[in-house]
């Protein structure tokens, strides 16, 4: 039980990192990025290809992360341009459709070109006991990276001027412009950051289980559930939701079975929409 909860928290932080990018892109520009998981997998596969091509693993990961971030940046500056010109419902719908189409394209391309490629980072060494639970080195490193990334993000949003600027655009775009903040620049930066974070989650996941070319939809679904439960646009909500869902996930797969976990998560998301439509923290950024 203790192991399940500890596992759940680590998994939950990964969920949080995955959801936070989706939630921010939506909060800033009204675009529900249905290709979020595909960007993660794209970065992971590029990491695997770079490694196969002879790069050491750390630089290979850096290449993957850089590519995922660049993909986000380029998407914002190209495909999303006509979307941002629209307002209200048409913007949400066009964003949704374009990103869904992109998800299919990335999935299709990867399956066609690299059908058996996957990223699996194996880290050796004996299990290390943490709070009486023996954890593998791979999951420990994954946890450490995830916690560090989560903490840096929170610090960025709470303490830096740039982080405050991002939150200000979500809370009141017109107010942000009056302060001299350019919302378009903020959106581009966040789209790139969300690609980076999604890829980082894929890389840390690959330290405990392989990430394959068909995993995009799984990551997207998870990110969507986390963002909905946390409240679209809420950073702290995404992390809280991630941790709650991570624990739900590990406990239900521990006591019931892995087959039930995605259903449990979707039930949690559906319940949230019914009980608290604006998310567990009530739509706070």
């Amino acid at each position: 039980m203790k192991a399940a909860i500890l596992d759940g928290i680590v998994l939950g932080l990964q969920y949080g990192l995955l959801g936070v990018g989706l939630t921010l892109v939506y909060g800033l520009g009204g675009v529900l990025n249905l290709a979020h998981g595909q960007l993660a997998v794209l970065g992971a596969i590029i990491t695997a290809l770079s490694f196969d091509a002879g790069l050491p693993i750390v630089p290979a990961i850096a290449v993957g992360l850089a590519c995922a971030a660049t993909a986000g940046l380029v998407l914002d500056l190209t495909l999303m341009r006509p979307v941002y010109r629209l307002r209200g419902e048409p913007r949400v719908l066009l964003g949704l459709l374009l990103m869904l189409g992109l998800a299919f394209i990335i999935d299709g391309f990867l399956v066609w070109r690299y059908p058996i490629q996957s990223l699996s980072i194996r880290i050796g060494g004996d299990p290390i006991p943490i709070l009486g639970v023996r954890m593998r080195t791979g999951s420990l490193i994954a946890s450490a990276v995830t916690i560090a990334a989560g903490a840096s993000l929170v610090a960025f949003f709470r303490l830096t001027t740039a982080g405050r600027a991002v939150r200000s655009v979500i809370q009141d775009e017109e107010g942000a412009r009056l302060c001299g903040i350019n919302p378009a620049r903020v959106r581009t930066f966040i789209f790139a950051l969300s690609g980076f974070l999604a890829c980082l989650v894929a890389v840390t996941r690959s330290m405990t289980a392989p990430v394959t070319v068909t995993n995009g939809i799984d990551f997207t679904t998870l990110a969507l559930i986390v963002a909905v439960v946390g409240g679209l646009g809420s950073v702290s909500g995404a992390f809280l939701a991630g941790i709650v869902l991570g624990i739900v996930n590990t406990i239900s797969s521990f006591y019931i079975g892995t087959y039930i976990t995605t259903i449990m998560l979707l039930v949690a998301a559906a319940l949230t929409i019914v009980i608290r439509p604006s998310g567990i923290l009530g739509g706070r950024t």
């Binding site: 001027t161 405050r164 600027a165 939150r167 200000s168 809370q171 009141d172 942000a176 009056l178």
Partner: peptide
């Protein structure tokens, strides 16, 4: 410019609102 509707950042502290006034 101070608009009539003010356009403050409601979920931020007074201090953070003021800090953003000095942006960048």
């Amino acid at each position: 410019y101070v608009p009539a509707e003010r356009h403050l950042f409601p979920e931020m502290s007074v201090r953070d609102n003021l800090i953003l006034g000095a942006y960048p």
